[in-house]
């Protein structure tokens, strides 16, 4: 598809660079006549990204493809307030079945806030108010009749900081299946624990010390334990808030493989600051900026040819 000339990205390309020391004016002799070729391009030639306040609202309309044909979850006009402060505004987006949706954006842009709306984790925050509508398989998760405990089993969550229960490694994983009544025998429970720990890439490291406290594991191992704990209750959707930020590259690769594997059965929404990770693991990417959903689209397109200038500036490191 062609990008129209009036599109923010196209406009960006034709703007004149004006960025202090890094602005480069180049003069090259062109031909024997000595005519000059002057380039106002800086580096790639893409211009100053300072956001103009005027017209900022227009810039923040969501562009791209927010909705999918087979949504697992739908969010419509979702806004979150902490007291009087509006943290996110009018977010409308679908989470498709069997897809990984990556949410990226600078710190404080609202991506984690939105993530926490998807399994009502914001209910626990004093003064937090959520408006709009979020549905899981067509069912309004904010309806008064909805019990958040089974909801959070259906929409599991892995947090940025590992938070194992002060229990044994085995019990950390077994706790969910036990309270949700997913197993009838000890053997079944043991199988779930082993499968979940294996999928989280932790089994080989802990199989001989399952009764030791989960809190005694290293940070990376604790995080994998938390992933195993989320997997153990067979959720429909898994929310991941920077799940690999404490892991080494090998463990990160394992988790990314696991995410790809889990996608075949579940939907995954991942918040990450590692854009390479977003591009590796996700099928769609959503970019948030100052509480607005700026752009949603296929990951491949967002990382090669984003449609919104703010997305372009953020992923190329020119954001300011």
């Amino acid at each position: 598809m062609m990008v129209p000339a009036c599109h923010p990205i196209a406009t960006t390309h034709f703007q004149t660079a004006n960025r202090g020391i890094s602005t480069m004016f180049m003069k090259l002799t062109s031909g024997p006549a000595g005519s000059t070729r002057q380039s106002t391009m800086e580096g790639t030639g893409f211009a100053d990204s300072r956001q103009q306040e005027a017209g900022a609202v227009a810039q923040r309309q969501t562009v791209g493809e927010s909705f999918v044909a087979d949504p697992r979850m739908t969010a419509r006009d979702v806004a979150v307030y902490y007291g009087d402060k509006c943290a996110i505004r009018s977010i409308s987006i679908d989470v498709g079945c069997n897809e990984v949706l990556a949410m990226i954006g600078p710190s404080g842009c609202g991506k984690s806030t939105f993530l926490r709306c998807l399994n009502r984790m914001n209910d626990t925050v004093p003064g937090c108010r959520v408006t709009g509508e979020i549905r899981l398989d067509g069912e309004d998760i904010y309806a008064p009749s909805v019990d958040v405990v089974p909801l959070r089993a259906r929409v599991g969550m892995v947090f940025q900081k590992p938070n194992p229960f002060p229990k044994s490694i085995f019990d950390n994983v077994a706790y969910g299946p036990k309270i949700h009544g997913l197993t009838r025998t000890k053997a079944e429970l043991e199988e779930i624990v082993e499968t979940s720990l294996s999928k989280a890439g932790l089994w080989e490291e802990v199989k001989d010390r399952l009764q030791e406290p989960g809190t005694g594991l290293s940070g990376g191992q604790q995080q994998r334990l938390c992933i195993a704990r989320a997997i153990a209750v067979s959720p429909e959707v898994i929310l991941m808030d920077e799940p690999c930020s404490a892991l080494d590259p090998i463990a990160t690769a394992r988790i990314e493989d696991l995410i790809a594997e889990l996608r075949l059965q579940y939907s995954i929404v991942i918040v990450t600051h590692a854009m390479q990770q977003a591009s590796r693991v996700s099928q769609r990417t959503a970019y948030f900026h100052l509480g607005d959903l700026i752009e949603v689209g296929p990951t491949e397109r967002v990382f090669t040819n984003p449609r919104h200038r703010l997305t372009e500036d953020y992923i190329t490191g020119r954001f300011g």
């Binding site: 890094s22 380039s39 800086e42 580096g43 030639g45 990204s49 490191g317 300011g320």
Partner: peptide, 17 residues
Amino acid sequence: MTTHFTFHHALIKLNKM
């Protein structure tokens, strides 16, 4: 403004080349 100076200067150099 947040910029990756090493990276963006490398791009400027490449553009010149």
